[in-house]
């Protein structure tokens, strides 16, 4: 399946989010890490939400994760799958599951990032069966 989101993606590009979308356009899933406390977080912020340090940076995630939860929005045409995916690095992100048989999607399923075109040279990280 594919989501019907692709045609409507309207990314909010600002100083905190721009590198994230640029990374996605290069095929990288970026997460934010803190050089002071060593913890990662998502969504990305300039100041670490764990220790309040401003020494934070984007790092590339492996792109592998498992489905924490999901739901199929049946009334959309076509239906799409929203999900929380827990990355191997330990943070959980909101995303879509694409290119899978909807009725076989399940919690605990291993998934891998892929990138869908988002216009203006940016891309959106989504996930599919690993």
């Amino acid at each position: 399946m594919s989501t019907d989101q692709e045609s409507k993606i309207n990314l909010v590009v600002n100083s905190e989010s721009k590198p994230y979308w640029e990374g996605a356009a290069k095929g990288q899933l970026l997460i934010r890490t803190c050089n002071t406390c060593g913890k990662v977080h998502h969504y990305p912020r300039t100041i670490c939400p764990h220790c309040f340090s401003d020494d934070t940076a984007f790092v590339e995630a492996s792109g592998n994760g498992v489905i924490y939860s999901y739901s199929v929005t049946r009334q959309a045409k076509p239906p799409y799958v929203i999900a929380y995916v827990t990355l191997d690095e330990g943070v959980t992100m909101l995303t879509n599951i694409v290119d899978c048989e909807i009725d076989k999607i399940h919690i605990g399923q291993k998934v891998r990032v892929k990138f869908s075109e988002a216009g203006d040279g940016y891309a959106l990280p989504v996930f599919t069966s690993a």
Binding site: L11, V12, E16, Y43, S71, T73, A76, I82, L94, A118
Partner: peptide, 18 residues
């Protein structure tokens, strides 16, 4: 949170559904 969530089509029902 807006930039990182809205592109995925969250709505009231599917967010409670999860």
């Amino acid at each position: 949170d807006f930039p990182f969530e809205t592109p995925y089509g969250p709505n009231v029902t599917n967010m409670y559904a999860m």
